[in-house]
Amino acid sequence: MLMSSVIKVLPLRSSRAHEACGPAAVSFAAIIAGQMQGSVLWISERWRQEQVHPEGLAIFCDPSKLVFASGTDQTEVLAASEEALRSGAVSAVISTLSKPLDLRQGRRLQLAAETGQSTGLFLIPEGMGSNAAETRWRSNPVYDAQDSTLMRWDLIKNKSGTLKSWLVRWDAEAHRVSVVHEDGK
């Protein structure tokens, strides 16, 4: 895949649970969903008023491969995520969380992802990561004089590698992420 040649850590390692935070976490999730082969399940709590707009999403990912689910509270969201990850019927599960995961929950989700060989991506509030996650990303939008989707992706946790930061932009024609700048630690 083109993206992997540029950013070594992408696409996200399969059979693992990952986390993303920051103001542009949804954009990060949309790009990850676009790179997946099969269907993607997007689970969130029902009280959330933010709605993914399919016309905006279509630049990154075909909206028809997304299935959305909503639960009444975080427990239901986590239960549904675990079930979906364990079944392996979808290639990725994206869950929007509002409370921190404890170790037991994080480990359960990690095991479920391993069983089902699918990728879990949890969109968490800033600073509420779980220790069980394979990688954690922070995604921030960056101002660009041109009209673009410039973002800063910081890999802030990585269980099997080093941490790094990238300045990336979505290339709509090539349908891939193009790296503007890369700096390691």
Binding site: S27, E50, Q51, H53, E55, A58
Partner: peptide, 11 residues
């Protein structure tokens, strides 16, 4: 999916 206009990702 027809994409005719520039629309936000989140609404």
């Amino acid at each position: 999916w027809p994409v005719l206009r520039d629309r936000p990702l989140q609404l």
